[in-house]
Design a protein around this nucleic acid. Sequence first.
DNA 1: ACTTTTCAGTGACTTCGGTCACACATGCCG
DNA 2: CGGCATGTGTGACCGAAGTCACTGAAAAGT
Lengths: 224, 224
Amino acid sequence: MDKRNVLGKFKFFTESEPSFQQELIASCSVARLAAGTCYFNEGDICDQFAIVGSGQLRVYKVGENGREITLYHVHAGESCLLNMSCLTAGTPCPATARAETDVEALVFQGTDFRRWMSSSELLRNYAFEMVATRLAGVMELIEEIAFQRMDQRLADYLATQFAEPHGRERSIETTHAQIAADLGSAREVVSRLLKDFEHRGAIQLSRGRIRLQSERVLRSITRD
Amino acid sequence: MDKRNVLGKFKFFTESEPSFQQELIASCSVARLAAGTCYFNEGDICDQFAIVGSGQLRVYKVGENGREITLYHVHAGESCLLNMSCLTAGTPCPATARAETDVEALVFQGTDFRRWMSSSELLRNYAFEMVATRLAGVMELIEEIAFQRMDQRLADYLATQFAEPHGRERSIETTHAQIAADLGSAREVVSRLLKDFEHRGAIQLSRGRIRLQSERVLRSITRD
DNA sequence: ACTTTTCAGTGACTTCGGTCACACATGCCG
DNA sequence: CGGCATGTGTGACCGAAGTCACTGAAAAGT
């Protein structure tokens, strides 16, 4: 993997002085995480900052009962809000991050990152933009879990998944248990609702995959 | 209200060069918000940054049904995460903020604030620390609403309130409806649970006020 | 071709919590 | 004093969604 390819996805790199670009390239190292590996645990103190080159991370909370809820995903070309926040403030991470697929990432040392945050306006802007974007997502999430019913949330979830690039095929590969963990619910609940959606003709189910049948019907569930 | 008194509560001010202190003082204006006044609405674009000198703001989300849930409060000597984030990134606010009591605040122009974020390491550190703290709170909130029962959440809520300085009297002044809005629940639910707590001897209820009877009993509810 | 995992489907049951519809109680204010 | 607004107490009810306990299917491993 070429470092430049990865960094090239970030404005704070592409628009920087060549000298700073050199420094960035020289200071980072390539890390590989196998699917399922933990990137950081709740309570950890981070001393590295990572940007994802390929694959994706899932950042989530675990309840005592063992149920999980996904806060957000970090895709290729993105970085993690909590990672950044904990690193700059030196506070423990309030959640857990784990590789969902095999992940390649570029890793910077905390001291470097903090120094650059002082020196590079571009990096700062990137950071603040990221904070704002993720934050909005997290606020949205709160509203959803506080006020929306599972069927709506599930329908929204599916709509989002189908809209994503890899979902172009109008079909997504995941298990009901996965979805339940994303939504913070139980597998059986998700299974039941999905079956219901299928009966209504919105989707078509098979083991490990959900195919979109009718976007119209799915959307009609979203705003019942 | 003396600007210096308010700014004196912030490290980014007290530890700054006198010249920067002068600039801060000169550039801010004093704003007063009557209780109930809106500071910003969901969707607004902020172009000011405020720090609270006295009173408190409540930042919350509203669901379509009209129910509300509090994300966090901004007390005297604090500032608002969303305000800062939207301002620096220029994104619309993902929630609403309203004065709970009469509020006095110092207000800075967005352009000034952004400039200082570049020039002052201290201000940046303050900002990042604030992000980290609030973020941890918000993540905590997500875990709570996703996985905890109302009785636990309510008990936690009370415990926190009683622990606060003005709660030293072991008594808090608020209505059941207020609490319901904080927790994102319905008034009747809160009333029922409170009555139950009273029967168990944890608290004592009267109109507009809740007195702490036994911290031990209250804590025992927290970890049932 | 087997066994073993991993997924999915489903009925029965329970419970939390939201909603409705009230009855009071408290206190302020004209 | 007699309202009127605001807060509280409660019973009845209902539905969403979590849990338990299974049965089968589909893959994967050997």
